[in-house]
Amino acid sequence: MLILPEFKLERPKSLAEALDAARRADGKCDFLGGGTDLLCNYKWGINTRPVVISLRGIAEMNRRDGRRVGGGVTLASLERDADFLDAFPGFRGALARLASPLIRETGTVAGNILLDTRCIWLNQTEFARKALGNCLKADGPECRVVKGSTDRCYANYSGDTAPLFMVHGASARLASPRGERSVPLTSFFRIDGITRFVKERDEVLVSLDMPPDAAEIRSSYQKLRVREAWDFAEVATAVGVRFDGPASKKRIGELRIVANAVASIPLWLEDVAKPFAGRTLDEATIDAIGDSVTAAVQPVRATWLPPSYRKQMAGVMAKRALREIAAGVA
């Protein structure tokens, strides 16, 4: 058996208690949602901390309230939430292709958004990492993927729900001892090497809040993985379209694109999307968008399949997403 490192487990019953526990731990803590990511990392001895604060007992986080999806809602319960899926059908495919049905039973939405980045050099036991030569992200001097990088890890972000929440304009509601704030998901992720979120260590991701007009966006998430279960995205693209006028006319009012699993955060491709406003969503436009997505991404060798291939596939996934949306309004 893999042995989990020792830690103190806090099991608060309310958000206030959780924040208090975090304050007491003085930042040397991790929150635990479903644990399907955190506990694997802990078993591998990756960035473990002495205090773990479980959020499962916080009732208010474990439900969906209209457009507010509690951070503690499990992926499986979201998958079974017919009202939510009717409003946001793009999530249906994304959830069905996320991890495995067993993992979705415990994995939570917040945990999925905050999923740690992954890398073929990293997600292994301490023994294997030592044998392979430790890298920057875990006790080593240098990144193995981007040789020479001593200050930035290029591990891959592959949380499958963040891209969709982004195209629907969702915000992350964060709570800390300093109070609550709401951050649009499109500015929630940032690459600066060490952290990847604007979230502070002691902040709890309480919920994801969809804006009132979120359901007007038609969305699709297309994911490429080697196997239809377990596998993280090798590359994926989420697309959101707000049609101008009747949808059947297919005039793009606003286009939103997130390229996923090609960088350390989900990439909000604003500049790629903008020029297509006003165009008709036909095959030519779809191809053009796909090609622009491919041109815009620069994956590195941190996953199973080679980056050059994944770069091509980012565009293919975008095209598939767009075709699905186009077919949905045809």
């Binding site: 073929i120 050099w121 997600n123 292994q124 294997a128 044998a131 392979l132 080697v226 196997r227 239809e228 279960a229 377990w230 596998d231 993280f232 199973w304």
Partner: peptide, 21 residues
């Protein structure tokens, strides 16, 4: 392998087919 080291020693990285394949 990376040099002499098995670099994918897990069920996630070693691709045994699932029921859908």
């Amino acid at each position: 392998y990376s040099g002499g080291r098995v670099s994918n020693p897990s069920f996630l990285d070693y691709k045994i087919l699932g029921p859908k394949e």
